[in-house]
Amino acid sequence: MYRIVSAIFLAENIKKFEIEAPRIAKKRKAGQFVIIRIDQNGERIPLTIADSDPEKGTITIIAQGAGKSTRELNRKEAGDSIADVVGPLGTPSHIENFGTAISIGGGVGTAIAYPTAAALKEAGNYVITINGARSKDLVILEDEMKAVSDEAYITTDDGSYGFHGFVTQKLQELIDSGKKIDFVLAIGPIPMMKAVADVTRPYGIKTVVSLNPIMIDGTGMCGGCRVTVGGEIKFGCIDGPEFDAHQVDFKNLADRNRIYQHEEKEADDTFAHECNLTRQA
């Protein structure tokens, strides 16, 4: 069992956990993930490691309640334990001093963009971050992102905070301003990552995305996480999760991620129903 040291909501439905996992805390690098299992009946859920404290022996993960398992996770509090945490999995982000690097996080994707932004900063890059959300209440890690940025921007779809518009509009604006941009990292919903790839492609700016395919073991064994990159089959868990955005077949990823949508909805509905019953009782 792995003990939760702290659990706080960053925004509605988005919760940050610090979990005791000393070996992983010592080992993990930016861009890597863990697989967790809440209890004996639990699914194996891949979640990117947002941060770690090797001294304390803890890792930080940030989860958005999107289905039954993540909603259940988000009900856990400090002092609770979860059954399994395994990792660090995946190939770490490729970090070097590119020059000027832009790190874009969309929604809960910011949790994943943050550690890589920090690593890019540490490697000597001029780091620009674009932190996008639907509205002001859903902006997360604002201070953390600022702390590792030379320039930090917030965008909201409804204009309730920061730049009114999408992250891609802000990115286009930066490109149009004549700034020389050497590297872009984009992490968020699939349509956002695809849109960023489309913006940078004509300029030939090296762009990397972190993919979230369905997976079970996370070590290459099940083959469920295969994605099409440059026309070839790659495994998200060992070849990725980060890939060249200009080579990724985003449609294929989006299609494949829908395989269990019916079952996921069923599980979610059953869970919501049970929660209501508990509340009434």
């Binding site: 064994m221 099409t228 089959i233 395989i259």
Partner: peptide
């Protein structure tokens, strides 16, 4: 067509 939805490895099916 090997990456269509509904094509999986025996390992994934059996592990599930």
């Amino acid at each position: 067509g090997e990456n269509l939805v509904g094509v999986l490895a025996a390992n994934e099916f059996l592990t599930r």
